[in-house]
Each structure stands twice: as C-alpha cells, then as structure tokens.
Design a protein around this nucleic acid. Structure first.
Lengths: 315, 315
DNA sequence: AGTCACTGATAACTACATTCGATCAACCCG
DNA sequence: CGGGTTGATCGAATGTAGTTATCAGTGACT
C-alpha cells in the first residue's frame, strides 16, 4: 500500500507558507507581497511553490506579467486566512494572559449612553486598570457593530439586545425611560403614568439611526399608537430637552440621562411610568471568542459594581 | 525603542509546536503525547518549551510525576486546537479540490427517509460519482446531529428545519403527508380531507425520538387537537401500517413512503388532505464551512434532478 | 531505608528546510 | 529592437527541528 498514484509526499503546510500564499492572494504580485510580509521575493516564490507541492494543487496562475488565483486558490486562500486569523487570536490571547489589562482598548459607545456613563467608566479604568489605554469612539449602533466585526473596535457599550450572530453581549443594567415635559404640561412630575398616555402626546424624537429613537417608537407601538409622529427631530438628547423646554412637545429620556439633562433647567419636569415602566438594557458587546474576552468579562463585572450608585437595576 | 523589558524575542509559533502542545494538553503525559503524534519525547518536550518561550507564558505545570495545564494553558489549548482544526480543514479542502468526489462520504439518514430515498441516492452516486465510497448510517435526528458536529459523520439526509447553529441545510424537496386508513374507515381513499378531521381520529405514532412523530403531533396541534393521543407506538413505518391494517387506528405517512408501504397491502387506503396539505421538507445538512461543502452542494443539485420522478415538490 | 521504575529535561549531533543575494528568462512597452 | 519589469532558479549560509543517548527527580514497593 503506497500513497496513491501521485508521487508527491503529502506533508503538512507550514505557517510561513500559508502566510506567503495569503500575501500573494492579497496583492496578486510577488514582489509587493514579499515586501509586505518582510521576506525576499525568491523566498516567497519558493514558499508558494512548496505549498502547492504539499497540497498537490495549483494555487496561483502566473504569467510573468500577471498573477491571478486559480479557482482552487480562491477557495484555499479563504482557509489560509482563517488559519492565520486563528494563530493571531492565539498570540493575542497569550499576550493578554501575559499582561492583562494593558495596551489599547478601543471602546465604541452610543451617543445616548456616552455622556452619562463615561465618567464612571473612565474613573474605574484609571483607578483599577491604569495600564489600560482606553480609546473611546462615539458612533451609532450600526457603525459600532460594523467596526466591531471588521476589527476596528474591540468592545462596545450600547443598548441590547442586538441579535447579531458572532457578537456576545455582557449585560450591565436595565434603566427605565422617564417622561420629560415642560412646566405647564398636565402630566408634569407625576408618578405612575400609564403607557397609554403616550398615545395623546406630541413626542419628540432623535434623528434617524439612533437606537433610542427606535426604542421610543417601539414603546409607542406597544402603547397602541400606530402613526409615526415625525414632526421635529434632534441630533442629541441635550437639544431634545431644549425643545421640550421650549414647549414643542415631550420626550422620553433614559434614567441615566435625566440628572444631567434636566437639573439645570427649571422649565422641565420628569414623570415616572407605572410599573413595569418601559426600559432599555445597556450592555458591553464583543466579538464571540475574542482573544481578550476574559478581560472584557472581568471589566463588565467591575463595571456592574461601579454602577451600583446609579438609579438603575444592575444585572 | 527596544521590545519592552522582557528580553525574549517574540516570534510566531510553529504548527508543530502547536501540535505538540495540543497533544500534551490532551494526554497530560509527554511520552504518550509524543508517540501519539509520532515524534520523540525530547523533541516534543523541546517544542512545548519553545512554544512557552515564544508566547512568554507558562502553559504546562510539570513535576516529574504529574503534568497539568496552567490556567493560561487551558485557554490557549482551545486556541491551539482551533488552529489545527483550521489547518486540517484547509488540507482536506485541498484534497477535495485535487480529487473531488472520491474517498469516504459518511452519510447519516433518518429512518423515515432511508428506505424510500436510498435507492435513488445510491443509484445516483454509483453512476455519477463511482469513486465515492458512500457509507450510510441510519439513526435518529438527534444522534445524527451529534455525529455531524463531532465529525463522526460528514453529511445528513433528514427533515428540516433544524435550527441548529453551525449546520447548513441544503433543501431538496417538500413532500405532503398522506392519511392512511384501514379499508372500512369512513375517510378511506378520500381527496381533500380537511385537517380538522385529525381531531376525531385515533392517530398511531412512531416511538419517541423520531422526528416524524413530533411532526405528526405538531400537525395535530395546528388542527386544534391539544391532547396527546399516546396509545400505541411503533419502531418503524412498516410496523405502523401493519397496525393500521389491523384496525388499531390511522396514521400519517410521508408521500415518498406511501407506495412501498401500502401497495402490497390491500387492507389499506390512502387519503389526501385539502390544499395546502401538511408537509415536511427533506434536506441535506452539513457543517457550515465544511471542507467538501462545494461537493455537497453539487451533490444536492444532482439529487434534486434525480428526485424529479418522485411525487414530491423538488426545490 | 533502599532500590527500582518511570517521569520529563538535557546534551550532542544530524538533517533539512528556509532564507538570502545574485542571476536568469520571459514578457510588455515604447 | 533594447529597457525595464515580472516571477523562477541557483548555490551557499543559517537556523530550526528532529534524532539517540543520558541525566536527575519522584513516588512506590519491599
């Protein structure tokens, strides 16, 4: 029993071969690929040839003027990238074990959370993880998720559930929505407001793309209001409460935003909904299987502790 | 700017180092691990040490009498296995490209499909892919899925939807269920039977674990029947129709099973439901990203063609 | 207490894979 | 019909990774 008719000895490809092939697949140019991964062109050329030999498949069609991948090469390039990504994850996790809570952490935060929670987050990080270089990016949910999956961001702080496969959520807390009204309004400052009251109100909303806008619309729908009351919109919660103060309508504010946004404005009153009040859940989100996942979970636990003083239901 | 305080030069781990580490992690014994992967004990010992050096992390706690993984080792062993799995997938896909439709294909089939479709499947494979060594395993859905995810099986032929993440379904066809009754029964041989008729019937079912049993119960529930009519059960469809012929009740049979199971028994009549009749979807299922996935898709397409003569709605 | 068997680590050596600089042959372009 | 690119090839230096033989520590058994 010999290996089939094929005379070549089937062996295991090496990582440098895969790296060479992946570089060629990316650049479609041997010299560029070689410099990109810091090796000489002959070495890379040989590595790709050796890989083709070990796999028994032609990966790259090369004329001296043009390089393109064979169909098999296209398929196997995907696999090669997957292998290299796993290796990178392993090395990153080793680095994380060796020196946890050091280096850069690119955190994405949604605009309706950032101003109110960042003080707590930054304090916690600076005191407890002084070697962690926290880089904050404020964007809307869709952009954040894109950044997370493409590797531009490491961790998100936003409203869940997202329902995105490959993204793991680490819930932090639930917070109620509060009804913000101008002084003269009938519901001003009440407790136990029924949701149905939303049906008769002129609700002011944030611009398109803010998840808080969609949540507010959902709450209206649940309260039995089917029309979409799009009259005025605002780019930020601060603007929104100014509009309320000006008498243009009412709005919903997450509990963590209330103090900051309403305390300095005597024109505003806040009303509480009847139990169970409409609420949103805020969480951290990471790529499932992220190399530093264990650290993110520890960070989430520390955050939950640090958030206890806030008027929210910590999870 | 030198590399940090740590004097060690950070390099890239090699695949053989990862293989060595994975083997140690599995056996927790250097000599056993060495023989398992076919290398000498010193070589393996050195490989693990080298890996620890390159990663800068202690992976294995070794006393001369006992070996166990450090916490970091536990985490990184998972990554190492992931890398090796990706490499294995790459090599397998290369093999598949080099020689498609050759070698073993371990196909799992559910019992309520196997007897009726295997003739078609086997014919197709033998004629069109003569080098494919088809190995059929008849088991229930849960076992099949376990076998698929653990790697014991390559491809499944069963009823979908499964709703299992990591498993990709390749739909083949929809087939109606048919009502099988004994000769004297009132509904015998009718067309356009309303589903609600099921409410008043003594329906015979397969044993626990057969997906067909659950499908039949679902159909009853949709027809407005909430009680579970568990009186008699049978291990196979052949037994089931014998029970029907004996007058113990009626049953549902998938369309592909009708000819085989009822033609030789004059005691039985088959009735059709009104449109839209209750039905099930039969599909192939493979691991998402399976190395031979492209071949399975081609096989699915060929199967759809081969199934056209059958009284089903090919997809 | 002493010895034995078995553990993983070490040493010395060898083989070969990888890499490099230099060079070659094919090809496009003007 | 050269000039400048392209990827392939060559021969030598290097370093990695493997081998066998041996060592040193540990627990078990007498």
């Amino acid at each position: 029993m010999r290996p089939p008719v094929n005379g070549a000895v089937r062996r295991r490809p090496s990582l440098s071969q895969l790296r060479a092939f992946a570089a060629v697949a990316e650049h479609l140019h041997f010299r560029d690929a070689a410099t990109a991964i810091g090796m000489s062109q002959p070495a890379l050329s040989g590595a790709v040839s050796a890989l083709e030999e070990t796999l028994g498949v032609t990966l790259v069609e090369r004329t001296t003027r043009k390089v393109l991948l064979s169909p098999a090469g296209e398929r196997l390039a995907v696999r090669a990238r997957a292998v290299l990504a796993e290796v990178a994850a392993l090395m990153e996790e080793a680095e994380a074990v060796r020196a946890p809570f050091t280096g850069a952490l690119r955190l994405g935060v949604i605009p309706t959370v950032a101003p109110y929670l960042l003080p707590t987050v930054l304090n916690l990080v600076h005191e407890r993880y002084p070697d962690l270089d926290l880089q904050v990016h404020e964007e809307q949910t869709a952009n954040l998720l894109d950044g997370l999956t493409t590797g531009r961001l490491d961790l998100l702080l936003l409203a869940v559930p997202l329902g995105v496969p490959g993204v793991t959520e680490l819930p932090l807390f639930d917070e109620d929505f509060v009804l913000v009204t101008p002084l003269g309004h009938g519901l001003g400052g009440q407790q136990g407001i029924p949701r149905e009251a939303l049906r008769a109100l002129n609700l002011l909303l944030l611009d398109e793309g803010h998840c808080l806008r969609d949540q507010a619309l959902d709450i209206c729908r649940e309260a039995g209001r089917d029309d979409v009351p799009v009259t005025t919109t605002a780019a930020g919660l601060s603007t929104l409460v100014q509009l309320v103060a000006g008498g243009l309508g009412v709005t919903l504010l997450p509990r963590t935003a209330v103090t900051v946004e309403t305390s300095r404005n005597p024109q505003l009153l806040t009303g509480r909904f009847a139990h169970p009040a409409p609420s949103r859940r805020v969480a951290l989100a990471m790529r499932t299987g992220a190399a530093r996942g264990a650290e993110y979970e520890e960070l989430a636990a520390a955050l939950r502790e640090a958030l206890r003083p806030l008027p929210v239901r910590v999870l």
